[in-house]
Write a protein that binds this DNA or RNA. Structure first.
Lengths: 245, 245
DNA sequence: CACGCTTAACTCGTCATACCAGTTGAGGGT
DNA sequence: ACCCTCAACTGGTATGACGAGTTAAGCGTG
């Protein structure tokens, strides 16, 4: 009951068929995270295919974060986990950034748009406690001005705090992930002499705008910060100029 | 030269080792998209491991979008492709939305923040031609008011056009992907009687704001549109009220 | 000589079997 | 009653064989 598909779907890989069968099985059986799947041997028998097909399918699902495989015990339906997914995307993104130069500019610009929306939301939602935590992050960073790598870490923590004020774990994770992807490419910029004090000043501006619950000011401050720190928006700035003609 | 790691890293899977070796190889040899990797047999010999390990590693890389495998020919370094990656994330996201109810609200809110930033950027960058294309999308949608599924498609096209005005393929792809992920869950809402004319009116408001190059108005219009269309932001609205206390 | 078809030599895809390596739990010894 | 051992699961890897798709060389024909 697996083979006839070969007529309909053009030479679909057997392991992909099995992948779908397993997805269907999980759905139909209403399996919850943590539930055990049958063993590979059992599944071979159920679907009448060899072990490689089963293993490939399970590994597919594992890489999608839908099941988790571990040596010695049966596979389980995985806990949903946004973070590990984006982590996996890291390699992918790095590959894209290396092999498609324009993507770097695009990603920087996407981050800019994304973080501007984020900081506006943060300015709208910030409670007093949030502002205090953000201020503490800024103070921590100030204290680390002499240690570039720690300074960078504190920089990340500051931006992360903003995302957390927006109050949504997805936004936190995405913001963090983009930061991670870009960090490789602009480390040297942040380390430029004098850049640390600039960064701190800009962060202070952002903090002030959030404290004042002023989305527009926060957006402006973040824009100034990112366009300087990321350095080069040549591509998009050039495009904008051309646009303005 | 593979085995000694077993002491350092705690029983790491062999196929993961091979995955890293291949990543390293691609990087060191500066292989470009389209370049052919050695055959599986050759790689077995190179690294002194069995074929399953090689195959698993290649499939890992394939699922990351770094190499592409096809029957009959050697594997190649893949063309970077954001879209296919996000498509792959579809299953994952669906799994998360089904098994983690809060995620649905979070994703809706994340979309709201994201699209608000997006529409502001669109309002800032829009050229006359962009406005015309967007107007055409709205007219197309107006004509399809009687065919729910086509109407939905036109709705998507309208939002996509906004992302394209922002001028960044990443933003387009992400916006599109989120729309796809959510569509399953709120189809019925959009189909609610009378909703079509509301949707069209709101889209018209957004269009007008973009045409006027007014980011604030565009953001307000989009906020009104999404909060109504997505219906329920109970979670975040409740949280906001609690916050305001 | 030029063109087209056959076919051989690759490639990945799948199966079968065996064995290694973790995990678990039942049973026997204390 | 407790702990420890070990057998019986589980997934992980190796090997060899064969099927299926792709490619290109070489033969045959015009």
């Amino acid at each position: 009951m697996v083979e006839q598909r070969k007529q309909v779907v053009r030479r679909r890989k057997l392991s992909d068929e099995v992948t779908d069968l397993l997805l269907q099985r999980i759905k139909n059986d209403k399996m919850k995270p943590g539930d055990l799947l049958p063993s590979e041997r059992q599944l071979m028998e159920d679907y009448g295919v060899g072990r490689p097909a089963i293993r490939e399918a399970l590994q597919n699902l594992d890489s999608m974060g839908i099941v988790s495989i571990s040596h010695g015990e049966r596979s389980r339906v995985a806990e949903p986990d946004f973070e590990s997914i984006l982590e996996r995307l890291g390699h992918t993104t790095r590959h894209m950034l290396v092999n498609s130069p324009r993507t770097l500019d695009e990603l920087k610009h996407a981050r800019l748009v994304f973080e501007m929306g984020l900081v506006r939301e943060a300015a709208r939602r910030a409670r007093d406690g949030d502002v205090q935590r953000l201020r503490r992050r800024l103070e921590e960073q100030t204290a680390l001005v002499e240690q570039p790598s720690e300074f960078m870490r504190a920089d990340m923590a500051f931006h992360r705090e903003i995302a957390e004020i927006a109050g949504n774990p997805i936004l936190v994770t995405v913001s963090q992930a983009i930061f991670d992807w870009l960090i490789v490419f602009h480390t040297e910029l942040v380390r430029a002499p004098g850049a640390e004090s600039l960064t701190l000043q800009e962060h202070a501006d952002i903090l002030a705008a959030i404290e004042a619950r002023d989305p527009d000011a926060a957006e402006r401050a973040l824009y100034a910060h990112l366009t300087r720190a990321n350095g080069l928006y040549q591509f998009y700035e050039a495009q904008r100029k051309k646009t303005a003609e």
